[in-house]
Design a protein around this nucleic acid. Structure first.
Length: 425
RNA sequence: GGAGAGGUGGCCGAGCGGUUGAAGGCGCACGCUUGGAAAGCGUGUGUAGGUUUACCCCUACCGAGGGUUCGAAUCCCUCCCUCUCCGCCA
């Protein structure tokens, strides 16, 4: 959420920033008019409250002395009518203003490219090379089903479209990948592991920005006000909601494995085949809380932390900087990691690493106390996938397939599969 | 799910309906003291909003939301959370 004070004082900056994004947002001039009205009402009400307080104290004194205080009492009663009226007006305006603020996305970082979709994303770097398949190569569904690693048909029977059953060595590989990723991030990159709840309340989803605007993407519980998490970002960022952190403790870095649940409401017909787009998938998420002045450096580190997984698995990938049109609602700047998928002859997103600056922190009230004193200020929050396990599974099958239809297990994963080197029938 | 107890500042812990934003303690910061440290002494130390160049000042906040009252941390109602016991359960 943007700071209303900031909007007031930098209206042109905000307007310019929002114009870069496509979409409809609340009218800012209206918003500022309402804010002005709110402050006027507030001041008036506070003045009356001050008067009331003084009168009530007088009543107390007079009564102690056994004197008549009915005049003061009547006066306060009278004041209360006006105060109530003003407070109701102010409260109403506050609600409207708050709701509007929740509907305004973050301002994009000044330096990210303009553009309406991914075609304007900026190439940053790439690593590794595309595998060279002389013969015909198979896609991950063909490989996975042939080798008995996944069962999509039975998953559809159990749950419906966009679900998968991993079985046998496939299940072990998925589990191994998750453990591998958590181990690398905790042991080599210094993250603390968190294992959070997979169901969260509404406040948490408001804090990270999924609600109120994107409720249709969430699976909701029928009998309880809870939602399945669409990403570990939600429980992990909200871990410190309503808290004031010590400046010396920053950056605070967490890695969390969770399954993620998404309704994929806006993606009918997209990626319907295979494991690419599922209602349930597994992901190791990296979350950072940083000092404001360090967040851009921390974003670069975060991307590298995620890249390390792909390097260790020797998978070809590229790093893209998202243009404004491709940028998420709460993010100011985002890098995507895209892994090479031979079957689609293209790169597919396997990680998205974002700096939200103070946008989520303001919503979720996550601050830090400055060592030099002064008011606590909002921290910057960042997160990124490190990585999405399902898509990583896909990338391994397709990039590590052999001419005979078997799949070589990447060396880094072998310890997690009892030393197994090849997946075959 | 049933019964009971409780939720007060970074932490512990007082608090009769009337200058209580809140005693006391711990912690922390600064100063004095010391060769240095500890101890001791002194001072300071919540958050948000409004106003202000700044200081000041004002308003709100004692789990959340309502109510009673001239006046509520203190009384009443609803909800949330924690703990104990019982039930159920992996």
């Amino acid at each position: 959420m943007l700071d209303i004070k900031f909007i007031r004082e930098n209206i042109q900056v905000v307007k310019t920033g929002l114009e870069r994004r496509n979409g409809k947002f609340p009218d800012l001039d209206d918003l500022l008019r309402q804010e002005e009205e709110r402050r006027e009402g507030l001041q008036e009400s506070e003045q009356l409250k001050n008067k009331k307080k003084k009168l009530s104290a007088e009543v107390g004194k007079l009564k102690q002395q056994g004197q008549d205080a009915s005049k003061q009492m009547d006066e306060v009663k009278n004041l209360n009518v006006f105060i109530k009226e003003l407070d109701e007006k102010v409260e109403g305006l506050e609600t409207i203003i708050h709701e509007k603020l929740l509907g305004i996305p973050n301002l994009p970082d000044e330096n990210i490219p303009d553009g309406v979709d991914e075609s304007s994303n900026r190439f940053i770097r790439e690593w590794g090379t595309k595998p060279d398949f002389t013969g015909e190569s198979l896609n991950h569904v063909e490989l996975g089903e042939k080798l008995g690693l996944i069962d999509l048909k039975r998953a559809a029977k159990i749950s419906g479209a966009r679900f998968a059953v991993y079985r046998g060595a496939g299940a072990a590989l998925l589990r191994g990948l998750i453990n591998f990723m958590v181990d690398v991030q905790t042991q080599e990159n210094g993250y603390e592991e968190l294992y959070p709840p997979f169901l969260v309340n509404e406040e948490s989803l408001l804090g990270t920005g999924q609600l109120p605007k994107f409720g249709e993407e969430l699976f909701a519980m029928k009998n309880d006000p809870l939602f399945l998490i669409p990403t570990a970002e939600v429980p992990v960022t909200n871990f410190h909601r309503d808290e004031i952190l010590e400046e010396e403790s920053l950056p605070v870095c967490y890695a969390a494995y969770t399954p993620c649940f998404r309704r994929e409401a806006g993606s009918y017909g997209k990626d319907t085949q295979g494991l690419i787009r599922q209602h349930q998938f597994d992901k190791v998420e990296l979350v950072k809380f940083s000092k404001p002045e360090d967040s851009n450096t921390e974003l670069e580190k975060l991307v590298q932390n995620a890249e390390l997984i792909l390097k260790k698995l020797n998978l070809h990938y590229r790093v893209m900087e998202l243009c404004v049109g491709d940028l998420g609602f709460s993010a100011a700047k985002t890098y995507d990691l895209e892994v090479w998928l031979p079957s689609q002859n293209t790169y597919r997103e396997i990680s998205s690493c974002s700096n939200f600056i103070d946008y989520q922190a303001r919503r979720a009230k996550i601050r830090c106390k400055k060592k030099t004193g002064g008011k606590p200020e909002f921290v910057h929050t960042l997160n990124g996938s490190g990585l999405a396990a399902g898509r990583l599974f896909v990338a391994i099958l397709e990039n590590y397939q052999n001419a005979d239809g078997t799949v070589t297990v990447p060396e880094a994963i072998r310890p997690y599969l009892q030393g197994r080197e090849v997946l075959s029938t």
